[in-house]
Design a binder for these strands. Structure first.
Ligand SMILES: [Zn+2]
Ligand SMILES: [Zn+2]
Ligand SMILES: [Zn+2]
Ligand SMILES: [Zn+2]
Lengths: 135, 135
DNA sequence: AACAGTATGTAATAATATAACATTTGAAAG
DNA sequence: CTTTCAAATGTTATATTATTACATACTGTT
């Protein structure tokens, strides 16, 4: 019920785009989304990019900057914090959102030398996932 | 002397591209570089992108992913670690590389739940710089 | 000289993203 | 119910970022 409520305010295009991303097991690229929603009547890049922009604002998806691709948020408190962290495998390219309090607490309270604090961050970790480490 | 040595092995195009980036007070975009080196005989995107790729590998520059732009490395140990952190002002867009041992130690030793460790990361912090906070 | 590895030059094209403008929709207020 | 305003949509064109592919040249080493 809580879940349904969250999605009530998604518009038609936003919902279509979100569904694609949420169902994917890997980050989805904008033009891959576009290709996949042609049958649903979305024909042009701006329609996709506008939906993406709104979904990011709502915290329902994130952009993985190093890949120019989009993933659904799994942790559900990113909406407020705008703070994201990802684990990216350098071989199989698997991307996982990291939800780790120690990490987020550390980064949210981080102050640089000048005393500057940050309300928002994006962190991308690169390494080898379990599977790829074995081989 | 140490500094000169480091730059000995840059090729002609690599040095030209590096100079542009190093002299800039802000992140430089690939096509801005291209425009600025036309007079020096570099005419086509691949020449710039190849130089950028090599300079990144050497740790002499970094890509600021959220901006698709490039900055010269200030901290000189990134070559080994491939670990970068930036502070980005959301108003004036000023970008600064963060060199902070507490931060880098924390991230270099970070382990996620699965026990996965990472040899490489990119972190981008967003906030307001001193100047912009005042106004 | 022969070789291997790195770098360069060049043309074409792919992939990612935005600008600009007209139109429609949907909820809220009167 | 209709006026109104913000959000969302549709559409065309274009801007920006990045790579492929292939030919050539330079570098240091055997
Ligand atoms: Zn999230
Ligand atoms: Zn993997
Ligand atoms: Zn650096
Ligand atoms: Zn600023």
């Amino acid at each position: 019920m809580a879940k349904m409520q969250k999605e009530y305010n998604l518009s038609k295009n936003q919902q279509i785009v979100f569904d694609i991303i949420e169902r994917s097991s890997e980050p989805v690229k904008a033009y891959s989304i576009l290709y996949n929603v042609k049958k649903k009547g979305i024909k042009a890049p701006p329609q996709v990019y506008r939906a993406l922009e709104k979904l990011i604002k709502l915290g329902k998806i994130h952009k993985v900057e190093s890949k120019n691709a989009f993933v659904a948020c799994k942790s559900s408190n990113c909406e407020i914090s705008k703070a994201t962290a990802f684990s990216i495998c350098e071989i199989c390219e698997k991307v996982t959102e990291i939800a780790n309090n120690k990490l987020s607490n550390f980064l949210n309270s981080f102050e640089d030398k000048s005393g500057m604090k940050y309300k928002k961050y994006n962190l991308e970790f690169f390494g080898l996932c379990k599977k790829c480490k074995k081989t």
